[in-house]
């Protein structure tokens, strides 16, 4: 080999570089696709009907869009004293208090079996319904939104009195509801608007037994010209799985962002994915006008 003609070497190098940068991974074993049932069910004593939604995961390597049927499934719910077989619904299973009464402080176990070999299990304990002495303060803030007829918005501060000595997990939701009559047709109409809080899901970690204040500064500006309006706040006292699952959904990063650490979705389903969780509800209604 002579080196008087560096051009040949250069072209050789070039070819190598071009074909070495990127390739499909074939030198290692890709993860085997294991079909799993995905459960989502949130049960509460206040519900007149409870659903257990069931779907399936799907492959992300190899041919996509191949229909992965889960086959025939059966589900059983137990309160540790008796077990009932659940009725099927469009997206899974359904039960009512007459089938199984959901009671505070009780543990419920869910089993789902399938003729294709699926066997998943999950359990949850219904939080006790407690009085958190919900208080709400509203603030009328001047704004210059061009769409606001009244040039005002309403901000909300919600106070929760946490119960000491218990790990509490919360979710808050709110909505504004207003009624008005059309000045021309005199027909009665209902309008509504959501109230979003800065922290929708939170726990009493570090503030056990203390007042917890959550604020919504997004503003309601919709009801000033209504005949009557209400604000409704729902405080969900949830089990830990409910909190972890929703928190993980909010914080999810599937690896698409190279600058973020991957975050998985929480699951308490043995042998599957998803969540079987519980909650009780406290609420507060404020009349605005």
């Amino acid at each position: 080999m002579t080196f008087q003609k560096p051009g040949y070497l250069f072209i050789f190098l070039l070819i190598i570089v071009l074909f070495s940068c990127e390739k499909d991974v074939t030198n290692i074993k890709l993860p085997e696709f294991i079909q799993k049932l995905v459960i989502s069910s949130f049960i509460s004593p206040s519900d007149t009907v409870s659903y257990i939604n069931i779907s399936s995961n799907r492959r992300i390597y190899g041919e996509l869009g191949v229909d992965e049927q889960v086959g025939k499934l059966t589900a059983f719910l137990s309160d540790n004293t008796r077990e009932v077989s659940l009725d099927t619904s469009k997206s899974g299973f359904v039960f009512r208090p007459k089938d199984m009464l959901i009671e505070e402080g009780k543990e419920f176990k869910l089993r789902v079996l399938g003729d294709k070999g699926f066997s998943v299990f999950a359990s949850c304990i219904i939080p006790e319904k407690m009085d958190f002495f919900l208080e709400a303060d509203t603030f009328s803030i001047p704004v210059d939104y061009y769409w606001s007829s009244d040039r005002r918005r309403i901000d909300v501060r919600l106070t929760i009195h946490d119960i000491q000595g218990k790990d509490n997990y919360y979710r808050i939701l709110g909505k504004g509801v207003g009624y008005y009559s059309d000045p021309y047709t005199h027909e009665s109409h209902k309008g509504d608007n959501i109230i979003r809080f800065e922290n929708e899901f939170f726990s009493d970690k570090g503030v056990d037994g203390k007042e917890i204040i959550q604020e919504s500064n997004h503003g309601l500006n919709y009801f000033f010209d209504h005949d009557s309006a209400f604000l409704v706040f729902y405080l969900y006292n949830t089990d830990k799985s409910y909190y972890q699952y929703h928190k993980s959904l909010n914080e999810y990063n599937g690896g698409d962002n190279p600058f973020e650490e991957v975050s998985p979705i929480f699951s308490n389903v043995t042998g599957g994915l998803g969540v079987f969780a519980a909650y009780t509800v406290d609420s507060l209604v404020l009349r605005l006008k």
Partner: peptide, 17 residues
């Protein structure tokens, strides 16, 4: 990632929230 799925969140007030 080994597979993917569609998660459901608790949606107590229907699509409203």
């Amino acid at each position: 990632a080994t597979s993917e799925y569609y998660p459901n969140e608790h949606n107590p007030e229907g699509s409203y929230f």
